[in-house]
């Protein structure tokens, strides 16, 4: 685990963890080694009529993340993330910072499938 992507409505570690993956406002990438953050915009996926989850998954893969922490992840996005070898963690923590603490403490376990149905 080196680079962790979080879905978020804000821009910092103190911001809300966005429960949506495909239509999350931003992705905050946290680099565990450098202890640095990088903010990615998800506007294009948010505006897509269909396939937002797939597009968001592409953003995560291209950013070089190996781990994703989000609220929920649908079947199409999960297929893309799984194929790219990205570990997906579903988390109900209110903020990105708290989700990071939960992940590092080992209290989250990786998802083996999508946790919600696909929707249009």
């Amino acid at each position: 685990m080196k680079k962790i992507a979080f879905s978020t409505t804000g821009q910092t570690l103190g911001a809300e963890l966005d429960p949506r993956f495909g239509r999350s406002i931003h992705f905050l990438i946290y680099d565990l080694e450098l202890e640095s953050t990088q903010l990615l915009d998800n506007q294009q996926s948010r505006n897509a009529a269909q396939g937002a989850g797939i597009q968001a998954a592409e953003i995560i893969v291209r950013a070089g993340a190996d781990t994703l922490v989000t609220g929920h992840c649908g079947p199409k996005a999960f297929r893309v993330l799984d194929a790219a070898g990205i570990a997906v963690y579903n988390c109900a923590a209110p903020t990105v910072g708290e989700a990071l603490i939960a992940l590092r403490s080992g209290s989250l376990s990786p998802a083996s499938s999508a946790d919600v149905e696909g929707h249009w």
Partner: peptide, 18 residues
Amino acid sequence: QFRGIVSLGTRALVFPEL
């Protein structure tokens, strides 16, 4: 442009509904 087929350095994935 429709994400009907996605390939990110791994085997291409097909999404028939798209």
